[in-house]
């Protein structure tokens, strides 16, 4: 795979009341051509700062960003030739202009003539189901429609990399799903590279090929979706008992159980190193005269994986 974007030790400092704060702290990752790459993290993790550094909208103190091997620090405009972005939802559009006026304007300020983008504009309007809305003032469109217009604008200049900051923020379930389909379509049919920042697990789970998880400015995980899922979803079992754990059983099972156990606990979530450990556990439960009502193997949702990685990074115990 061809590398198209590379971050090397990116560090962004902000001056605060308590001195310098590292909003982005030594972040490194690469994005390959044609992939959908996720930048995931809780609010305030440093996602938007990272995206803005890539766009050249935020000066960074340390590290380097290379877009198609062009250093953004040394030659910002050369790097920007390959990038377009939708920042903070859909704030990249003029709400008092129509859909086609917006598309024409953004193509124009990027040095493209009206004639040269005519076909591409027709294609994008069709692809985003905006043909009927082309002459409507953006302010009169729904939030989801505005978001589609914003993404269409980022594609009108036909650049290689599209940066999307929270593309599904504030969208309803249906529109969010439609947006995920659109993103996959852009990557597949247009061959575009998409870097999206979000805290919407569903978007990441359904669209991203690889991702980096950041928290408090630092990289917590950086891998393919598949590998990150494998990390956690293999050996988690749910056991439901007919009565509370005895003191002996509680004591012996303690190291398997990551969630807090209280006196009333009859449902347990166990994290095992090997499925064979189940034999010992079941035998213990039998000795203690505890009846087994249910035993399931759990598949962790990506949200749980994410939360665990964040907790792990913060030094907390992982909960299952």
């Amino acid at each position: 795979m061809t590398e198209i974007l590379r971050l090397e030790g990116l560090t962004k400092l902000y001056k605060g009341k308590e001195g310098l704060k590292r909003a982005v702290d030594n972040v490194s990752f690469t994005v390959n051509k044609g992939e959908i790459f996720g930048l995931l993290g809780p609010n305030g993790a440093g996602k938007t700062s990272t995206i803005k550094c890539i766009c050249g909208l935020l000066k960074f103190e340390e590290g380097e960003i290379f877009i198609k091997d062009n250093s953004i620090k040394e030659n910002r405009s050369k790097g920007l030739r390959h990038i377009s972005a939708v920042l903070e939802g859909n704030r990249n559009i003029y709400w008092r202009m129509t859909v086609s006026e917006n598309l024409n304007f953004f193509a124009g300020i990027n040095g493209l003539s009206k004639r040269s983008i005519a076909n591409r504009m027709a294609y994008l309007l069709e692809a985003f189901q905006l043909t009927e809305e082309r002459n409507k003032i953006v302010n009169h469109l729904s939030r989801g429609m505005k978001q589609k217009v914003a993404i269409a604008i980022s594609l009108i200049t036909d650049k290689d990399i599209i940066l999307l900051d929270e593309p599904t923020l504030g969208l309803d379930v249906g529109m969010s799903q439609e947006m995920r389909i659109i993103l996959r379509k852009i990557a597949k049919e247009e061959g575009k590279t998409i870097l999206l920042s979000t805290h919407d697990m569903k978007v990441v789970e359904e669209t991203c090929d690889r991702l980096v998880i950041i928290n408090k400015g630092k990289v917590v995980a950086y891998d393919t979706m598949e590998n990150l899922k494998k990390l956690f979803n293999q050996l988690i079992y749910r056991i439901v008992l007919d009565k509370n754990l005895t003191p002996k059983a509680r004591s012996e099972l303690k190291h398997y159980i990551n969630s807090d156990i209280n006196e009333e606990e009859v449902e347990l979530r166990l994290s095992l190193q090997s499925p064979n450990e189940l034999f010992g556990i079941l035998s213990l439960l039998q000795q203690e005269a505890l009846g087994l009502l249910a035993l399931d193997r759990l598949n962790m949702s990506f949200e749980e994986i994410f939360m665990n990685l964040i907790r792990e990074a913060e030094g907390d115990e992982i909960s299952i």
Binding site: K52, C55, G56, L57, S77, L80, R81, I83, S84, A85, L87, E88, R91, N92, I93, Y94, W95, F106, I109, N110, G111
Partner: peptide, 18 residues
Amino acid sequence: RKGTLEQLYMTEIPFTWL
């Protein structure tokens, strides 16, 4: 205020020219 200034800064054409 509208958020479009950032977009104008992201074009290949220098903002000063715009």
